[in-house]
Structures are given as C-alpha cells and as structure tokens.
Simulated scan of single mutants.
Amino acid sequence: MITVVPVTLEFNGLRLEPLALHHEEGLRAAASDGELWNLRVTSVPEPHDTRQYIATALETRDRVAFAAVDTRSGAVLGTTSYHDIVPAADRVEIGYTWYARRVQRSHVNTSCKLLLLSHAFDTLGAGVAGLRTDCENFASQAAIEKLGAKKDGTIRHHVLRRDGTVRDTVMYSILKSEWPAIKRALHERLERHSRA
C-alpha cells in the first residue's frame, strides 16, 4: 500500500518542491506568461485566483501538489501534482500540470514527469501511474502518448470545464512492468534534447 507525502525532488536543473502559499507570486507570473488561463482545456488560474488555486490544492485530501522551480534562477515555472491517489491499489495519478509558455516544448515537462514517475515507481512502489486530460486538449494527449503511456479509454460527460461545458476525459496509464523501458526512453529523449 503506497503512502504519498510531500517531498522535494530535483533533476536536470529543476526542483519539484511542495506547493505553498509563498509560491503565489511566481505561479501568477508563470500563468501570465502566455495568459494560460484563457485556454479552455486547462485548469490554470486567473491571476486574481492564484492564492485560492494554491489553497484548494493544499486542502484536497488525495492530492500532493508541487511547484516546478528552475534551480538556477529560482523562478517558478509552473505546477504539477499527484492526485486521485488510491493507496490500497498502489495507484497514483499525475496531473494538474501546466507551465509558463516560455518553457513549453522544452526539457521541463519531460524532466518533471521523469521525477514524478521515478518517485512513484522506484520509491513509493506504485503499481500504476495514471494520467488524464480533456478530450479537446490534443497537445496534452500527444505529450502523454510521447511519454509512453497507454490510452485506457474515455470517460464521457465527466467534469465541468471553467466555461460551464462538460468535458469528456481521456485516461492513460503506465504499469510498473512498463516503467523500466519508459524510463530509459525518457532519459534518451532528454540526452537528445541536451545535444540539440
């Protein structure tokens, strides 16, 4: 049975540290880089809602949220979380992930996913890591599939979007048995990126 607690993880110039109210200004700046709250298919808070966004993340029982921080500059680049944790099934999901526009399509997402997946499988002993996204968030679906996750299916008419429409949710997962090959592939991808 897994137990997920706040922890600090570091790799490849990035640090995932437990999200806290002192990250408010940095998280607001990250969201403002690209006005990400205007994207209908994400959960990025509007600037005036950043503090409440953090408070909600901290109050949610089965969620452990992180700030993604550049280790050199100390800048907050975005956020990601473990959520929908099912200890008895050794299941954890990774989501509520978004980053400043300037670091999208960089090494940041791959590095953060590698940190979270490594911690989930190699330290916590998870049997499965799930990921989910809006059926209309094609960029997110492509990124999840590039990680090596398998598509489990779609939950139709699942949850409300910020605009009041109801989204279908596309579900993915990585099994513990699949993790070694995926881990190697992610390290290789990061090596290619650093050479480019």
Rank of each mutant, 00 (worst) to 15 (best):
H157W: 08
E46P: 02
C135V: 15
T42Y: 11
A31V: 02
H193C: 01
G34Q: 05
P18E: 08
E46N: 01
L27K: 06
T50H: 06
G34R: 03
T8D: 11
S194D: 12
A181L: 07
E188C: 04
G127I: 00
E188V: 00
L14S: 08
T50C: 10
E178H: 00
E24P: 07
N38G: 12
T60N: 01
I182S: 07
F138S: 13
L27R: 10
K176N: 06
R72M: 04
R161V: 09
L36K: 01
A181C: 01
T80G: 00
R162T: 02
A185K: 13
G148M: 02
R15V: 05
G26E: 00
T71G: 02
L186Q: 15
L115R: 11
S177H: 00
L115W: 07
P45D: 11
G148H: 12
K183C: 10
E136W: 14
T169K: 01
E46I: 01
V92Y: 05
T42F: 09
S106T: 15
S43D: 09
A30T: 01
L36R: 00
L160Q: 13
L186N: 14
A30F: 08
R184C: 01
T133G: 05
Q104I: 06
E145L: 06
L77G: 13
Y53W: 14
G164T: 10
Q104D: 10
V166G: 13
I155K: 04
L58G: 03
H107V: 13
G78L: 13
H48C: 01
E17Q: 13
A30M: 03
E93I: 15
G26P: 01
H23T: 05
L58E: 06
R15Y: 06
L147S: 08
V128T: 11
M1D: 14
F138A: 15
G130P: 03
G13V: 05
R156A: 12
T165N: 09
S32I: 01
S194G: 08
R156G: 10
Q52N: 09
V5E: 13
S81F: 02
K176T: 04
Q52E: 09
Y99K: 10
A142R: 04
W98A: 04
D62R: 04
A88Y: 09
D33M: 08
G13A: 02
G95A: 05
R51S: 12
E10F: 12
E10C: 14
E59G: 06
I144N: 00
Q104S: 01
Y53A: 09
S173G: 06
G26M: 03
G130T: 13
R91H: 06
G34H: 05
T169A: 11
G148N: 09
S140Q: 13
G74H: 00
G26K: 07
A149W: 12
